[in-house]
Every structure is written in C-alpha cells, then in structure tokens.
C-alpha cells in the first residue's frame, strides 16, 4: 500500500513552548487510524500541523505527494465541536452545505445539486428532519454528526476528525462509526484523534501513540500493546484500558 501522507521532522511550538517535535510519519492509504495520547500530548496539534492550519517551526509535509494547498477538496477536516461559533444564526442544512464550498470557489453560490447532496448526507447521519433546525439547539452528538455530514458532502479522499467522540451519546457514536467503516470500505483514509482507549480495538485498524513525539505507530493488532500504552501514558495512573 502506498503512503498518502509523509511528514518529515515536524516541530510545532506555541509561544516559544514546543508542543510536538521531530515528528516523522508515513501514513498508508485506506486505513482507519486512531491518534491516542494523554491530554496535552499534541494530538490535535499533530493533525492541524499536517493540514498546515497552524504554523510550524520546521518540517516537510506532503499529502498525496503534493503540497497541501494543491489538495483542496481532497481533504476534509472535522474540528472539535467547541472550535466553531455555534451562536452563528444558521440552520443545520446550511452548515452541511458549507462542505460543498470548496468545490464552488469564490463568489459562486451552491446549486440545487449541492443541496440534494447535503440532504443525502443528513439522511446518512439520521438527521434529515433537522435540516431547518437552528444549530444552537443541537446536542453535542448531533453537532458532531452534522460536522461529519459536512465532511461527507466534501467527497474527499482523506478525512481528519478531531475527537469526534467527545461528549456524545451512544446513538451518535454508533452512527458515526458505521459511516466511518463504510467510508473505509469505499477506499477512503480516516484519521481520528481519539480519547477512549477502550474502543481503539473495536473501531480502528491502525494506531499512533503520541506524547510530544511519536511513541509507536502501526497496526492495532501488533502496536496496541500494554507496553506502548505505558510508554505513552507514563506517570499517569489508571488510563482505563483494554
């Protein structure tokens, strides 16, 4: 299998404090990958760094063999729910439609076809009845599903999700992972910042352990071991595992 992401020597600092350093990483095509590590280990920073959403001190990143800017539309990103402005006065359908913007470019308005695609995505996340609902009225799990729908209509190849399971209900979790599984079977690559070590084996086929730098990376079967967990969560009692 070919590598679709190649990261060399990535170091990112915030206000002169390094968050992650010397990251070398090659991510294979068509995997469903969990990024795990303790709080403050730099999980979100890693994916934001790969996507060049935050400045880095050093590092070379190639996605699909090219610079990220040449891959617009092929990459979808689902932020942490708290990172956007939920007071913005708009509807669920409108947020999902935003996933189509990348294919429209400047000035052009979404077409009927775009709206149909957005409605289809809403059906997939079982929220078609919420199309006209105010986004401020959604629960945490519903917000997360709406984000996933927005990523779906982007029709990307590569998906990044930042803690999609944070504070969500069981139903939402099941819906989201069903869709992620389906996406993988369609040849997509899915990279998820994940908090819950208990569900790594259930949902993922690959795993990255990170704590400031990469501790281990590989298939879940061979890499998701007690030894690697201990190395990553060093000094942290009761991580509630396996």
């Amino acid at each position: 299998m070919e590598n679709i992401i190649e990261v060399e020597d990535l170091t990112i600092a915030y206000q002169n404090k390094p968050i992650i350093w010397d990251i070398d990483l090659k991510i294979k095509n068509n995997v469903i990958l969990a990024i795990v590590g303790p709080n403050g280990a730099g999980k979100s920073t890693l994916i934001k760094g790969i996507l060049s959403l935050i400045p880095s001190l050093s590092g070379k990143i190639e996605i699909f063999g090219k610079n990220i800017n040449k891959n617009k539309g092929k990459i979808a990103y689902v932020p942490q729910v708290g990172n956007v402005n939920w007071d913005f006065p708009t509807t669920v359908l409108d947020v999902v439609l935003m996933g189509r913007y990348v294919h429209l470019g400047w000035v052009k308005k979404p077409t009927k076809k775009d709206k149909e695609k957005a409605m289809e995505a809403l059906k997939m996340i079982e929220m078609e009845n919420f199309a006209d609902r105010q986004i401020s009225q959604l629960s945490g799990g519903q917000k997360q599903r709406v984000f996933l729908a927005r990523a779906l209509v982007q029709e990307a190849e590569l998906y990044f999700l930042d803690e999609p399971m944070q504070g969500i209900d069981i139903k939402s979790e099941a819906i989201i992972f069903d869709i992620l599984k389906k996406m993988k079977s369609e040849g997509k690559t899915i990279i998820v910042v994940h908090h819950d070590l208990k569900t790594v084996k259930k949902y993922f086929d690959s795993v990255i352990f990170i704590n400031k730098n990469i501790i281990a990376y590989g298939d879940v079967e061979t890499t998701f071991t007690k030894e690697n967990i201990d190395k990553t969560y060093i000094g942290i009692q009761d991580v509630g595992i396996i």
Binding site: K48, L51, L53, K72, I75, A76, Y77, P79, N83, V84, N85, F88, T90, D94, V95, M98, Y101, V102, L104, G105, W106, V107, K109, P110, R150
Partner: peptide
C-alpha cells in the same frame, strides 16, 4: 461574498481548507 462571510464567521479553519 455571502457564503464566504458565513464560513469565515462560523468556522475559520474550514474557510482555510476550502480555499477562502
């Protein structure tokens, strides 16, 4: 720039990734 303004206010990172 109606749609650009919306995405800019709601989710700036998504605006970057969408090329705006």
């Amino acid at each position: 720039l109606y749609k650009e303004i919306k995405i800019f206010i709601f989710d700036e990172l998504q605006a970057i990734l969408s090329g705006f």
